[in-house]
Amino acid sequence: MAPKVYGNVFSTATMRAFATLHEKDVEFEVVHIDMKAGEHKKEPFVSFNPFGQVPAFEDGDLKLFESRAITAYVAYEYKGKGTELVYFDSKKMATVGLWMEVEAHHFDPIASKLVWEQIMKKKFVGLEPDSAAVEENQKKLGEVLDVYEVRLSKSKYLGGDEFTLADLHHLPTMQYLMGTSTKEVFVARPLVSAWAKDILARPAWIKTLALQKQA
């Protein structure tokens, strides 16, 4: 049976799982969770994820939640298929792991706040963005991307010279931000801008975005 992803096609975390499966050329089933109706906070979904957050994932008798745990499993389980998103050399993988941690702890918290303020806040609760919060977080994001600019002067991608999970994990929030004024924070840094343009154009990511159009 094909793996199943329980989530919402507009959820950044769910999109992260979709993108990984597409990169690995793994067929999968999407089980839509209606977040507006609160399905992610009710049974049967909370039996998959007790924290009531999407996505959840099922592959045979394995059940997972937390998108980065799902992407890591898929990358290793389907070794030899599609794009090798991880290394099997311990030193190379240590570098990828480092930048995966950077994304999770430095990039994503700020980027997610900007996605909320500039896109989701009005969509879900009908409120306008807090301009002070946007400005503050754009400044913080710029400081993170300054570090990325230096890193990308040394390798094509964050984890080395090949596209890995360290890059892929950025895609969902980055996609949303490119439709806002925060795009300029990326554009202002030439190497970051080129990197973003490169990874956002990957066929697997285009397939992930197509799922939103089908919804």
Rank of each mutant, 00 (worst) to 15 (best):
P129Y: 01
A215S: 13
L85Y: 03
K4L: 11
E103M: 07
H169Q: 12
A210W: 07
G97R: 14
S47W: 01
L200S: 04
E117L: 01
K154P: 06
F18D: 11
M100S: 13
E101N: 10
S153T: 06
F163G: 09
E162C: 05
E136C: 02
Y87I: 00
P172G: 10
L85N: 02
A201W: 01
K63R: 09
R189E: 13
Y6H: 14
L209C: 02
M35V: 15
E135T: 15
E143R: 08
K42Q: 15
I70L: 08
E23G: 03
K154W: 03
D108M: 08
A201P: 01
L62G: 05
F107E: 04
E149P: 03
K91Y: 13
E117I: 01
F28R: 07
D146Q: 10
S90K: 12
M35W: 07
K197I: 00
S112I: 05
F51T: 11
Y76H: 14
T208Q: 05
E143W: 00
G179M: 01
K24D: 00
V115G: 05
S153Q: 11
E136H: 06
P44Q: 03
M15N: 12
Y76F: 09
S181I: 00
P50Y: 02
G160I: 14
A196C: 08
W116D: 09
L191P: 06
N8Q: 11
A196E: 04
N137G: 13
V86W: 04
E136W: 00
E58Q: 15
P3Y: 11
F28A: 08
V134M: 03
G52V: 09
Y148E: 08
V147R: 09
E128G: 01
L177N: 03
F10V: 12
K81R: 14
E149N: 12
P172H: 08
F48R: 05
V26Q: 00
V144H: 08
L211M: 15
T182C: 08
A94D: 13
F57V: 11
E58R: 11
Y76P: 00
H40A: 10
F48I: 15
K91T: 13
E135D: 13
T182S: 15
Y78W: 02
K79N: 06
W99R: 10
I199S: 04
V54W: 13
